[in-house]
Write a protein that binds this DNA or RNA. Structure first.
Length: 828
DNA sequence: GCGTACCGGCTACCA
DNA sequence: ACTGGTAGCCGGTACGCG
């Protein structure tokens, strides 16, 4: 076995064509020859072109003997050469920067044992708003993974602080801070620039959404740092990424500020400055500043010790063979796949160089357009309360489809040509893949899953569940799982070298086909499918049955079907029996509740799971769910009584401030709201943004308050008159006790109402809501009474209920159809 | 003049 | 720079009725 070189980091110098390799032995500068690849056949067919380039001293060649030619080019001249070759033949891996070429070709593995320095800076805070780098850094605190603490402060000589910090950084391998990518490092870099101190990073703009997190805050326009010669991990960023699905946690922390997170996770707090500014602290209370600054980094380290954020990240990058600083999904998969392909003796396509379309789409107003091709299929749910529901799901659906149908660019045939149908696997979309030669992507996925199985079934068995080794192995297998699942994603990403619409959509539509086919099979056996989404099916029956036996039956049907109908590879696609539910309530697509036989309650998609739900609405919804799941007899009249009781609560003014406060987040800076939409229409400004705009103007002079109204902050507000757009909603701090009863009634009741409507469709649950009195005198009198009478009359006839139901569903179907884009037609 | 249907933006979820 | 599908809220606008 070759001894792999353990690396800390690497980067390159394009001018000198050298790679800087940072290992425990230091930083070595290594000259490296850059190349791209072409197919040997293509090269032979255009011998003249290459001879010409060779004569002009631009290129050199190496025959890899595997059907590929390496074309060596001086890195600086690559564009000249490529513009001549690209129009004539397909080039492979021509987009790799030098360091990446090196990383993929040499035997390198990430060093897992790296010295970590948790750090935090404090800056003057005299001016309003926080613009990183605009004010003096007064102190920096740090702690390393061996618990050594460091602190340096100097209000007269900022340069000294920076020099001290750079020296400290060089004694460690990883810098880690809280929101340091968007703040601390930006500030340090700016201040270093001011004193012409070298700090190995550059400042760029956020180009995409702030991944994970309290979902996507677009940070376009804001700056961040791209570290180059040192490793950096933004703990906040990574924490968001790892926990963004944990709505319980997010609801608890509300914001990802260090104070909020450490108080929830550690039960510890930042030092309370009681309104004192850093400016004053630095000058008058240096001891308190030191304590404050150090406490932050202690919290950082404790958070990481508890959550293993950096450890998990190191393992993830080690598995991918990627640099620490390349943290995007694509940035991690790409080196892994390139390396695997090289080991298999093949090469991957270059990134599409015509990105015009993509760039246009990205720059098109605020976001990218979604829905370039069809995705998963969602069955129309049979709404209501069901008993004995069994859930089945496909095991890793998309990776399994890739293996089953051999989905890969190098095994894909645009047409049959002179091949025999027996040599082909046919997708339900009609796409053809080689039956004989396994493509690179399925091979890679197979390797990934084999390694994951090896870890889970062999390695992990050797250790106790609470041991360090076990945990590390767990992170390793998880990294493999994520890798396997991301392969489909990059095949659908138009900027990537793996992109092919036909393949990405082939995978999703095959998923649709399989889900529908299995559903039909189950229904053919007399069972009822009540719902299904992408890879899952929920099944019930009037008679008791053994779900395991059914799963077996389905599986053998599936294998036969795949082989006979598509000539596909057997044994990869399996439908698993997942769980059974005593009671199961289907409210809408992607919204359901189930109670398993063990008494575990699973709530999916409902308002109780959403962080923008009013606490009162959540409380009511929980009450309803509990009653529906646990009442011995579920009687409609009880729920009507329940609703009437709640009605009183709201209209008698019993709601308290905490029941009324909405928390909505500013998704962008206040100035950026409004404007004109695609169709030349004005984009309405949401209520919470209107409040923020107003208050921002009002508090123009107050420093600390302004930060409350910048992108990402939550605005707490109460609605006192829904119809008054200008003054109808107020900041929670200005709440005096008055609220819009009608508005809050529906805000609290509607989420529960929708469940009740699903379970008892025969009753008109809107009837409970009183008619809202009209504002002007003319409107309050006779017409409203007449209307209400008319309304009640209409509602009570069974036909009208039927009609309303139909209208609603047909309407939503219509919208769905218009929303749906062009699809491949599946021939079945 | 008023009420409603419809549409697009937006957020937050599910897979 | 991983994907699409969906509910539900909101405000603006077009349109049809009286």
């Amino acid at each position: 076995m070759n001894q792999m070189t353990k690396f800390i980091n690497l980067w390159d110098n394009k001018k000198t064509s050298t790679v800087f390799l940072h290992t425990k032995e230091g930083i070595k500068e290594i000259p490296y020859k850059w190349y791209f690849c072409v197919k040997k056949d293509d090269a032979v067919n255009h011998r003249k072109l290459f001879e010409d380039l060779y004569d002009r001293d631009l290129v050199d060649f190496e025959d890899e003997k595997t059907g590929w030619i390496k074309v060596y080019v001086a890195y600086q001249k690559k564009e000249n050469v490529l513009t001549e070759i690209r129009p004539i033949m397909t080039t492979y891996e021509d987009d790799l920067p030098l360091w990446k070429r090196f990383l993929v070709d040499e035997d390198l593995e990430l060093d897992l044992d790296q010295k970590i320095l948790y750090f935090d800076i404090e800056t003057d805070d005299l001016k309003r708003g926080i613009i990183p780098g605009s004010e003096r850094i007064v102190s920096i605190a740090a702690i390393n993974n061996e618990n050594e603490e460091f602190f340096y402060s100097d209000i007269k000589n900022e340069k000294k602080i920076l020099e001290w910090f750079i020296d400290l950084q060089q004694k460690h391998h990883i810098l880690s801070g809280w929101h340091s990518e968007g703040f601390d490092l930006v500030a340090i870099k700016r201040r270093c620039d001011k004193y012409e101190l070298p700090f190995g990073c550059m400042i760029t703009e956020w180009s995409a959404k702030d991944m994970g997190g309290l979902d996507s805050v677009r940070k376009t326009g804001k700056e961040r740092v791209r570290p180059l010669t040192f490793n950096h991990i933004d703990l906040m960023q990574k924490m968001k990424e790892l926990h963004y699905r944990d709505t319980e946690l997010i609801k608890k922390v509300r914001s990802f500020g260090l104070e909020a997170v450490s108080s929830v996770i550690l039960g510890k707090h930042k030092v309370d400055l009681k309104g004192e500014t850093i400016y004053n602290l630095a000058r008058k209370k240096p001891d308190l500043l030191k304590e404050y600054n150090l406490q932050d980094v202690r919290l950082l380290k404790e958070l990481d010790d508890k959550l293993h954020i950096i450890r998990q990240k190191l393992i993830e990058h080690w598995v991918c063979g990627a640099r620490i600083n390349d943290y995007t999904s694509h940035g991690k998969i790409d080196p892994y796949a390139l390396r695997e392909a090289r080991k298999m003796g093949t090469r991957l396509l270059s990134k599409p160089n015509d990105l015009k379309e993509f760039v246009e789409r990205r720059d098109d107003d605020r976001g990218k357009t979604k829905g370039d091709y069809a995705g998963g299929y969602v069955f129309e749910p049979i709404k209501g309360l069901h008993q004995n529901v069994h859930a089945f799901d496909f095991q890793s659906l998309y990776p399994s489809i890739i293996k089953t149908f051999n989905v890969s660019l190098d095994s894909y045939y645009e047409s049959l040509g002179d091949h025999n149908m027996n040599e082909m696997i046919v997708m339900p979309t009609g796409a053809l893949f080689s039956k004989k030669t396994q493509g690179v992507i399925p091979k890679i996925i197979q390797n990934i899953l084999d390694q994951r199985d090896q870890i889970r079934k062999v390695e992990m068995m050797k250790y106790k569940k609470d041991s360090e080794e076990y945990l590390s192995l767990h992170y390793r297998q998880y990294a493999f799982k994520v890798l396997a699942n991301s392969m489909y994603g990059i095949m659908g990403a138009s900027f990537s070298r793996y992109y092919k619409r036909e393949l990405a959509e082939g995978i999703t539509l095959t998923g649709q086909y399989l889900l529908k086919t299995v559903s039909e099979f189950i229904e053919g056996k007399g069972y009822t499918r009540i719902y299904g989404d992408t890879d899952s099916l929920f099944v019930t029956s009037k008679v008791l049955f053994d779900p395991n036996a059914l799963a077996q039956e389905i599986d053998s049907f599936l294998q036969r079907h795949l082989e006979e109908k598509f000539n596909a590879n057997k044994g990869h696609l399996h439908l698993n029996y997942e769980a059974s539910y005593k009671r199961f309530i289907l409210v809408a697509k992607k919204k359901y509740i189930g109670e398993t036989e063990k008494g575990e309650i699973k709530i999916v998609g409902l308002e109780v799971k959403k962080r923008d739900t009013l606490p009162k609405a959540e409380q009511w919804q929980r009450e309803i769910i509990d009653l529906l799941l646990h009442s011995k007899q579920v009687s409609m009249n009880n729920f009507i009584d329940w609703a009437k009781l709640k009605l009183g609560e709201v209209f008698e003014g019993k709601l308290k401030k905490e029941d009324l406060v909405f928390q909505k987040r500013l998704s962008r800076e206040t100035e950026d709201y409004g404007g004109t939409g695609k169709n030349g229409r004005k984009i309405p400004i949401p209520r919470h943004a209107r409040i923020a705009i107003k208050l921002k103007e009002k508090h123009n002079e107050s420093i600390d308050k302004l930060n409350l109204y910048s992108a990402g902050s939550y605005i707490p507000f109460v609605i006192i008159d829904e119809e008054d757009m200008e003054n109808g909603s107020i900041h929670a701090d200005e709440f005096k006790g008055q609220y819009d009863t009608y508005y809050y009634w529906s805000a609290c009741y509607d989420p529960s109402k929708r469940i009740l409507q699903a379970v008892f469709p025969e009753y008109d649950w809107d009837k409970i809501t009183p008619q809202k009195p009209r504002k002007t005198r003319a409107r309050t009198t006779t017409p409203s009474v007449n209307q209400q009478a008319l309304r009640l009359q209409q509602i009570h006839t069974p036909e009208s209920i039927q009609e309303r139901g139909n209208r609603v569903s047909s309407k939503s179907n219509d919208t769905r159809k218009t929303v749906c884009k062009k699809k491949f037609i599946i021939p079945f």
